[in-house]
């Protein structure tokens, strides 16, 4: 397999690509989950627009928090790679 070089480790470039590819969609999905939760709670409890607005904001916040945590994870990994001089994983 061309994407699994010698030691069988997934190459650094591929890992980076996949990490970068995951960030955006989580934000969008969190927003929509928040929206859906608010909408159905409103329908159930009959408190028309309020829970929708609150849960939409909560969803957006959750999405941003996820992006923030992911960015911090990447940063920590980067520092680890540079500090420890990882075995050929940081490309």
């Amino acid at each position: 397999m061309m994407f699994f070089p010698k030691q069988g480790k997934p190459s650094g470039a591929m890992e980076m690509l996949s990490t970068a590819g995951t960030i955006g969609l989580q934000l969008v999905c969190s927003t929509f989950i928040g929206l859906a939760m608010g909408y159905f709670l409103d329908k159930w409890l009959g408190t028309s627009p309020w829970l929708l607005v609150i849960f939409l904001l909560l969803g957006i916040t959750a999405g941003f928090r996820d992006v923030f945590l992911e960015a911090r994870r990447i940063q920590r990994k980067d520092e680890e790679d540079q500090g420890g001089g990882g075995p050929g994983s940081g490309k």
Partner: peptide
Amino acid sequence: LETVSHLARPLSLTL
């Protein structure tokens, strides 16, 4: 917040 973000995980994986 965590509930929302945990529920968003399968959705984002799928999409």
